[in-house]
Design a protein around this nucleic acid. Structure first.
Length: 198
DNA sequence: CCCTGATTCGC
DNA sequence: GCGAATCAGG
C-alpha cells in the first residue's frame, strides 16, 4: 500500500480527531501503526495541538518546557483572550499558565469506546446465561477502567458509586466488547423466552 | 499483558 | 519517503 492522497487525508483526519495510530492503521488497512506514526511525523503533524499564531516552522523537537515566553522579545500578538475574567485583579502571586478548567480527577473521557454496557438486570435473561455470568464474575480479573482494552471484557460489575466496582476483564469474544459469558447476556436474540403466541 | 507515541536507520 | 525495530512510557 502506498500513501495516496486519500489515505493521507484520512490519516490526517483521524489523527486530528485524536484517534490512535493503531486505530488509524486498522482503518486504512495495509499498514501498521508504525507506518502511520512514521507518516505522521514526516507530515510534521506530530503535535496534535496546532501552534497558535500562524503556520510557523514547527521544529518537531520536543520542548520539555515551552517557557511561557512573556512578552519580552516577541511582538505583541493580537490575542482575543477569551478568558473570562470576572472581577479579580491579577493576583501578584497566583500563577497558573496551563491550568484549564475542571478538577484533576473528574475527567475520564474514553476516546473511542463503545457505549456503556447495559447493566445486567437479572430479570429478562436466561437462567443459564445468568448462572454462567455469575460464575465468571467470581473469577473475573477485576480490572479498572484504565485497564480496559479492545480485548478485555468491558462488562461492569458492581456499583460504580462504590469501591465495589470493576470490569470483567476476561478475554473478549472476537469482535465483541465482552467475554463469551457476557456476550451471552448482552446480546439477546430478542426473544429470550418463547414468546407465547396469543 | 495489553497498549501508546517517538525515534532510529537500512532500505 | 517508507516503515520495522526499537525505545520509553502507561
Amino acid at each position: 500500500m502506498s500513501w495516496t492522497d486519500e489515505r493521507v487525508e484520512l490519516l490526517k483526519k483521524m489523527w486530528s480527531e485524536g484517534q490512535s495510530a493503531s486505530q488509524i492503521a486498522k482503518e486504512l488497512g495495509g499498514v501498521t501503526r508504525n507506518a502511520v506514526i512514521g507518516k505522521v511525523h514526516r507530515l510534521g503533524l506530530s503535535n496534535r495541538t496546532a501552534p497558535a499564531g500562524g503556520a510557523e516552522s514547527a521544529p518537531a523537537a520536543a520542548e520539555p518546557a515551552p517557557a511561557p515566553t512573556p512578552a519580552a522579545k516577541a511582538k505583541a500578538a493580537p490575542k482575543p483572550e477569551p478568558e473570562p475574567e470576572p472581577a479579580a485583579k491579577t493576583p501578584e502571586v497566583a500563577v497558573e499558565p496551563p491550568a484549564p478548567p475542571m478538577s484533576p480527577a473528574r475527567r475520564a473521557i474514553i476516546p473511542a469506546g463503545q457505549p456503556l454496557p447495559p447493566q445486567p438486570s437479572a430479570n429478562e435473561i436466561s437462567p443459564e446465561a445468568f448462572a454462567k455470568v455469575s460464575e465468571v464474575e467470581k473469577s473475573a480479573k477485576r480490572i479498572t477502567l484504565m485497564e480496559l482494552t479492545e480485548r478485555t471484557c468491558k462488562w461492569p460489575i458492581g456499583d460504580p458509586a462504590t469501591e465495589d466496582f470493576w470490569f470483567c476483564g476476561l478475554p473478549v469474544q472476537q469482535g465483541k466488547p465482552y467475554c463469551e459469558a457476557h456476550v451471552g447476556v448482552a446480546f439477546q436474540p430478542m426473544s429470550s423466552r418463547r414468546d407465547r403466541r396469543r
